[in-house]
Design a protein around this nucleic acid. Structure first.
Length: 1003
RNA sequence: GCCCGGGUGGCGAAAUUGGUAGACGCGCAGGACUUAAAAUCCUGUUCUAGCAAUAGAGUGCGGGUUCGAUUCCCGCCUCGGGCACCA
C-alpha cells in the first residue's frame, strides 16, 4: 500500500475533485427526478460570495467556506437535499481602479480573476453546486438586478435627491467612503471635500419597521440582531407644537424624552432648516444669522465635524410663544450640532440633556430642572442627575404629579398626559437613512432610466373621483389640486351627485357631462371612486394617459349598514379585459391598515389590470389625510422614464477610458451615442442616466439567483416553483463586517419582493452566524504592505488540501479571531497520516467488536455531530484525534469502527476519506453515504472515576462501576486513608455526592 | 462616551445545569530506532518547593454568594469589534 505522501504526490486529491465533477455529485435539482432525492428535506447553506480580486484567494476566505462545506457535507450525508452554491460579486472599485491605471477593460480582468478564483476554490475541494455559479457582472445576471430596481422605482421607492459625495479635488473624482482616509484621498493623498450631487436614493426608511420586526422571527446571532436594531435606531417620542411670536408660523419639535418637557427653556434649529431664513428675513438679525449659517454649512462640508470643539450657535431674535400655554417664551437659536435630517430639525432644550446643558452654559441661556429638589430619590432616576443638582436653585415649576414612581413608569403617563391635553402628538423617528444608490462609476450596473424633458413638460388633465360619503374638499384633494395646478396642469375635482346613496352610472354620466376626458387625462379614483373609474372607462372606451386607484373598492363586501347601499350602487360586473387596454399604466395604492378593502382583492385587481400594486401605510387610514406624500410621489412628474422591462438588460457600453468626467459624472457620460437615446413613452429625445448602481446591488438578491437559474442556456427565469422549494436560506454564514449593510440591504430587497408577491418569505435568511478573522502569525491583520500574507496555494502544495482544511477548522473557536500558525498545519497533517496508516491494520470482519473502541466511537459520533451543528469545529477535530490515537494503539482494527471513523472525518478531509473508503471496496462516493447515529447505550462507560474532596480540595480518586449507589461511594470515600488523614479524626459536618463526579466532605 | 465580544500554561486552546482546571494540537525536554540527520514511536511538560511521595499557589484585578466558582452577583483594569452631535 502506498503512503499518504505518495497519495498526495500522485495528485490523489485532484483525482477525487475530478470524480466529484464528472459524476455531478454536488449538483442538485428541486424536481426530485430520481428515487434518491424523493422525499428528502431541502437544506440551503449559503456563504458570502467572494469579490474576485486580482490578488487571488486570501486565507480569510477558506474559514467560512470550509465551515459551511463541513456543515453541508454532513447534512447531505444525513439525507438532506443540499444546495451549497457559489458565485462572484464582481463589480467593484479595485477592478475599476485597475482599469483606470492600465486601460484594460474591467470585464476582461474580471474574467481572468474569476478563472483564478475558480481554480483555487476547486483546489480546496468544496462541495459547491458549480453548475449554478453566478457572476454579478454577467448581463444575464444584472438584467434582473436592473429589473428589481425598476420594480422599486415603479413602487415609488426610488427617487432622486441632492446628496453630498466625497470629492477629491486633484483627482476630480467622487470617492467611496472607504477611499477617504483621515479626510484625505486614498489614491493621491490630496484633500477631500463634500460636494452635492443629485443621486438616486432607495426608500429603505419606509421599511424600517418591517426590518425591525422581522428580526424577531429569525435565528441570528445576538450581535447581528443588536447591530441591526441600533442601526435602524427606532425611537418613540412626542412632536410638540410651537408657535412663533409675532409671526404667522408654527413648527413641531421632536422629543424622545418627553419626561423633561416642562424643563425646556430654549429651542435650537438646524442651520440648513428653511425656517431659519423664514424667521430672520427682514429683521436686524438677518445678516448675522445667515452669515453664521453659511459658515456652519461650509464647516460641515469639510471632513470631520466635532461636537465638542465645533459647538457654536447664534440667537435669531425669535421666540416660541407661550410654550405649552404656560406663558413662557423660549428663545430660538441656530446651533451647529442640530441635525436637519433627524426628527423635525428643531430641538427643544433643557438642563437634563448634557449637550444642551453645555450649550446653555456657553451662551448663558436660562436653565431649570423639571423636579422639586426635595424629591431626591426620584431625581436620581433622572438622566444627568449631576446637572440637576448643579441647577437646583433655578426656577421651579410643577409639571405633573410623579408620586415617587420610577422614571420609566412615569414616561407613559406623561406621554398620555401630553396627548390628552393636546400639547403634542406621538411620533416615531429612526436613525436609519435612505440608501444612496448612485455611483459615478463605470464598473456597475447601469441604471435603466432615461430622462425625458418633453414628458416632464407635458401637462395633464387630472380628474379626481372621490368615494362613498365623501366630497371634493376632503382629505388631500384640495392640497394636491393646488400643487398640480401650480405646475400648469388642470384639475377637475367635482362633488358627485348623491354621495350618501350613490348610483355609479349616474356619477359616471355627471363626470362625462362636465369635463373632457382624452389621452391626456389622468384618472384618480379613491375608494368607491375606483368603481366609478372602471365604469367610466368601460363606457368611454377611449384611452387615457394614466390611472391611479387609491385603495379602490373591488367587491361589495362591506360592513352591515353600508353594505346594501354600496351593493345597489352598481351592477358589480366589470369588463377588466376591456378596461385594461384603456391605459398604459394602472397604479393601485393599497392601505395595509384599512380592513374593509382586502389585500387579496387588490392583488387580484393588479393582475386583471396588468397594473402595479403598491401596498403602503399612509399618513392616515385609507388615504384620508389632508397631505398624503404617497399620492404626491406617484402623481408627480419627474421626467424620469423607466425602460421597458423587455429591453433589459441595459448593457454597459464599451468605453475608451475609465476616468470619471471632470465634473464627476460617470465615464458613461463621455459616450454621446449611448447617452442620447429615445424616450420609450413619447418617442422624443431623451438622455440616459449615467450613474451606475453600487456594489451592494448585485449582492442584495444573489441568494435568489442561485435558485432561479435555468440550466440550459444560462438564462435566469423568475421561477416561483424553484424559489418556493429552496428559499428561504436555511443557514447563512458571513463576516461581522457585513451584518449591518449587506444584511440590511438584502433583507430590504427580499421584503420588498415579498410584498409585491415575488418571493415566498419576507425574511430571506432563517439563520445567520458569523466567523472570526484569520490574523497573520504576528497577530496583525494580513496585508500586502506588512508582508505577512499566507497564500492558500502554497499551503495546499506543502501539506495537501485536507490538512489545510482540517487545520483551519481546528485552529480555534470559529467565531473568534485566530492567528495563523503554519506549525499547526504540521500537527494536523500528522493526524491525517495516522488515519491513513490505520488502514493497514484493519480486518474486514464486520462482526467482531472491541468494547472500549466502540464506546469511544459512539461518544465521538455524538460529539462530532453536535459540535458541527454548533460550529464547534475545533473540538470536533480534537475528539476525532482522541479516537484515532486510541485506535492506533490497537493491534487490530475492525471494519465497522474504521468505516465510521472515515464518515465522521470526511466532511473535514474529504479526499483522504474518499480514497480510504474506496480501498474498502465501496463503489459510491463517501459524500453520499449515510451519516451514522450514535447508540445511547454504547456511549456510557462501565467504569468511571469519582474523586473525594475535603473542604473543596481533591484528596483521593476511585475507579468505580458506573451504577454504584450513593451510599456505597460515600462509604468508600470516607474509608479512604487519604481522606482520613485530612479528617484528622473529626466527624464530617456534611457529605455531598454529585452523581458520577465527586464526593465532597465538609469538616 | 454608548453598545457588543474577549482576557485560562511557553503558544493555539478545552472544560455539560456551578462539580477533578489545562482535553486536543504546537513547542520544549528526555529516551528508542539510525553511522548521523530527518521522519516515526515512547515518556514528561501550569507554576513554586522537593530526588520523590507530597504540599502550596493558580483561569485579568478586588470583593461577594456557595460544601465547591473559569462558570453566578457587585466594583474595576485591559484588548478587539461596532456606533458615535440621532434631541
Amino acid at each position: 500500500m502506498k503512503t499518504y505522501q505518495e497519495f498526495l504526490e500522485e495528485q490523489g486529491e485532484k483525482k477525487w475533485q475530478k470524480y466529484w465533477e464528472d459524476n455531478k455529485i454536488f449538483e442538485v435539482t428541486e424536481e426530485s427526478p430520481s428515487v434518491k432525492t424523493q422525499g428528502r428535506e431541502k437544506f440551503y447553506g449559503l456563504i458570502e460570495f467572494p469579490y474576485p480580486s486580482g490578488a487571488g484567494l486570501h486565507v480569510g476566505h477558506p474559514r467560512p467556506f470550509t465551515a459551511m462545506d463541513v456543515i453541508c457535507r454532513k447534512k447531505r450525508m444525513q439525507g438532506k437535499n443540499v444546495l451549497f452554491p457559489i458565485g462572484f460579486d464582481a463589480f467593484g472599485l479595485p477592478t475599476e481602479n485597475f482599469a483606470i491605471k492600465t486601460g484594460r477593460p474591467p470585464a476582461e480582468v474580471t474574467a481572468e480573476n474569476i478563472a483564478n478564483f475558480t481554480r483555487q476554490l476547486k483546489m480546496l475541494g468544496y462541495s459547491f453546486a458549480w453548475d449554478r455559479a453566478v457572476d454579478t457582472t454577467d448581463p444575464k445576471y444584472y438584467k434582473w438586478t436592473q429589473w428589481i430596481f425598476l420594480q422599486l422605482f415603479k413602487h415609488g421607492l426610488a427617487y432622486k435627491k441632492a446628496m453630498p459625495i466625497n470629492w477629491c479635488i486633484s483627482c476630480k473624482i467622487g470617492l467611496a467612503n472607504e477611499e477617504v482616509v483621515d479626510g484625505k484621498c486614498e489614491r493621491c493623498g490630496g484633500p477631500v471635500e463634500k460636494r452635492n450631487k443629485e443621486q438616486w436614493m432607495l426608500s429603505i426608511t419606509k421599511y424600517a419597521d418591517k426590518l425591525l420586526q422581522g428580526l424577531e422571527t429569525v435565528d441570528y446571532i445576538p450581535q447581528a440582531k443588536i447591530q441591526q436594531q441600533n442601526w435602524i435606531g427606532r425611537s418613540e417620542g412626542i412632536n410638540f407644537k410651537h408657535k412663533i411670536k409675532d409671526m404667522n408660523l408654527e413648527f413641531e419639535v421632536y422629543d424622545s424624552i418627553p419626561q423633561t418637557f416642562m424643563a425646556q427653556t430654549f429651542v435650537i434649529i438646524a442651520p440648513e432648516h428653511p425656517y431659519v431664513y423664514e424667521m430672520v428675513k427682514g429683521t436686524e438679525h438677518e445678516k448675522e444669522v445667515m452669515e453664521f449659517v453659511e459658515k456652519i454649512k461650509k464647516k460641515k462640508a469639510g471632513d470631520k465635524f466635532d461636537i465638542d470643539s465645533d459647538m457654536e450657535g447664534i440667537f435669531i431674535g425669535r421666540y416660541s410663544e407661550n410654550y405649552l400655554g404656560i406663558g413662557r417664551n423660549l428663545p430660538i437659536w441656530v446651533a451647529s450640532f442640530a441635525l436637519m435630517d433627524y426628527g423635525t430639525g428643531i430641538v427643544g432644550c433643557s438642563v437634563h440633556d448634557e449637550r444642551d446643558y453645555k450649550f446653555a452654559k456657553m451662551y448663558d441661556l436660562p436653565l431649570h430642572p423639571v423636579l422639586f429638589p426635595e424629591d431626591k430619590e426620584l431625581a436620581e432616576k433622572v438622566r444627568s442627575t449631576e446637572i440637576f443638582y448643579r441647577e437646583q436653585n433655578g426656577i421651579l415649576e410643577e409639571p405633573i404629579d410623579f408620586k415617587g414612581r420610577k422614571w420609566d413608569e412615569v414616561r407613559q403617563d406623561i406621554i398620555e398626559y401630553i396627548v390628552k391635553n393636546n400639547l403634542g402628538k406621538r411620533a416615531v423617528n429612526y436613525k436609519l437613512r435612505d440608501w444612496v444608490f448612485s455611483r459615478q462609476r463605470y464598473w456597475g450596473e447601469p441604471i435603466p432610466l432615461v430622462y425625458c424633458e418633453n414628458c416632464k413638460n407635458k401637462k395633464h388633465h387630472y380628474v379626481f373621483v372621490h368615494g362613498f360619503m365623501s366630497y371634493s374638499g376632503e382629505g388631500w384633494k384640495p392640497w394636491m389640486k393646488q400643487i398640480l395646478e401650480k405646475q400648469g396642469n388642470t384639475v377637475f375635482c367635482p362633488d358627485l351627485p348623491n354621495t350618501n346613496e350613490p348610483n355609479i352610472d349616474e356619477q359616471v354620466e355627471y363626470i362625462l357631462k362636465n369635463t373632457k376626458i382624452d389621452e391626456n387625462t389622468i384618472l384618480v379614483g379613491h375608494s368607491l371612486g375606483g368603481v366609478v373609474v372602471y365604469k367610466l372607462l368601460e363606457k368611454l372606451n377611449k384611452k387615457v394617459a394614466k390611472v391611479l386607484l387609491l385603495d379602490p373598492v373591488v367587491t361589495a363586501k362591506f360592513p352591515d349598514k353600508i353594505r346594501p347601499v354600496v351593493e345597489k350602487s352598481c351592477d358589480w360586473n366589470f369588463d377588466f379585459e376591456k378596461i385594461k387596454k384603456l391605459s398604459n399604466e394602472f397604479i393601485i395604492l393599497g392601505d395595509i391598515d384599512f380592513k374593509t378593502i382586502f389585500e387579496k382583492d387588490l392583488r387580484d385587481l393588479e393582475k386583471k389590470l396588468d397594473g402595479t400594486l403598491v401596498l403602503a401605510r399612509p399618513e392616515d387610514v385609507h388615504f384620508t389625510a389632508s397631505e398624503e406624500p404617497m399620492v404626491l410621489q406617484l402623481l408627480e412628474n419627474t421626467g424620469w422614464i423607466p425602460l421597458p422591462e423587455s429591453s433589459l438588460p441595459l448593457e454597459l457600453p464599451k468605453v475608451a477610458k475609465y476616468e470619471p468626467t471632470d465634473n464627476g459624472e460617470s465615464p458613461l457620460a463621455h459616450i454621446d451615442e449611448w447617452v442620447n437615446t429615445i424616450c420609450p413613452v413619447c418617442g422624443g429625445e431623451a438622455r440616459r442616466e449615467t450613474d451606475t448602481m453600487p456594489n451592494w446591488a448585485g449582492s442584495s438578491w444573489y441568494f435568489l439567483a442561485y435558485t432561479m437559474m435555468k440550466e440550459k442556456n444560462g438564462e435566469y427565469i423568475w421561477d416561483r416553483e424553484k424559489m418556493d422549494y429552496w428559499n428561504p436560506v436555511d443557514w447563512y454564514n458571513g463576516g461581522m463586517e457585513h451584518t449591518v449593510l449587506h444584511l440590511l440591504y438584502s433583507r430590504f430587497w427580499n421584503e420588498f419582493l415579498f410584498d409585491i408577491g415575488l418571493v415566498p418569505t419576507s425574511e430571506p435568511y432563517k439563520k445567520r452566524t458569523s466567523h472570526g478573522m484569520i490574523l497573520a502569525s504576528d497577530g496583525e491583520k494580513m496585508s500586502k504592505s506588512r508582508g505577512n500574507v499566507i497564500n492558500p496555494d502554497e499551503m495546499v502544495e506543502k501539506f495537501g488540501t485536507d490538512a489545510f482544511r482540517t487545520y483551519i477548522m481546528f485552529m480555534g473557536p470559529f467565531d473568534q479571531a485566530v492567528a495563523w500558525d503554519t506549525n499547526g498545519v504540521v500537527g494536523v497533517r500528522r493526524f491525517l497520516e495516522k488515519v491513513w496508516n490505520l488502514g493497514i491494520r484493519t480486518t474486514k470482519d464486520t462482526k467482531l467488536r472491541n468494547t472500549k473502541i466502540d464506546t469511544l466511537l459512539h461518544q465521538t459520533i455524538k460529539k462530532v455531530s453536535e459540535d458541527i451543528e454548533a460550529m464547534h469545529f475545533n473540538t470536533a477535530v480534537a475528539q476525532l484525534m482522541i479516537l484515532v490515537n486510541e485506535m492506533s494503539k490497537e493491534e487490530q482494527l475492525f471494519l465497522t469502527p474504521y468505516s465510521l471513523l472515515l464518515k465522521l472525518l470526511s466532511p473535514f478531509a474529504p479526499h483522504l476519506c474518499e480514497e480510504l473508503w474506496a480501498d474498502l471496496g465501496n463503489k459510491d462516493s463517501i459524500a453520499l453515504s449515510e451519516w451514522s447515529e450514535y447508540d445511547p447505550k454504547l456511549i456510557i462507560d462501565d467504569v468511571i472515576t469519582v474523586v473525594a474532596q475535603v473542604n473543596g480540595k481533591v484528596r483521593d480518586e476511585f475507579q468505580v462501576p458506573v451504577d454504584i449507589s450513593e451510599e456505597e461511594i460515600k462509604k468508600l470515600a470516607l474509608a479512604s486513608d487519604k481522606v482520613q488523614k485530612w479528617l484528622e479524626g473529626k466527624e464530617p459536618k456534611k457529605v455531598i455526592y454529585v452523581k458520577g463526579r465527586l464526593v465532597s466532605i465538609v469538616i
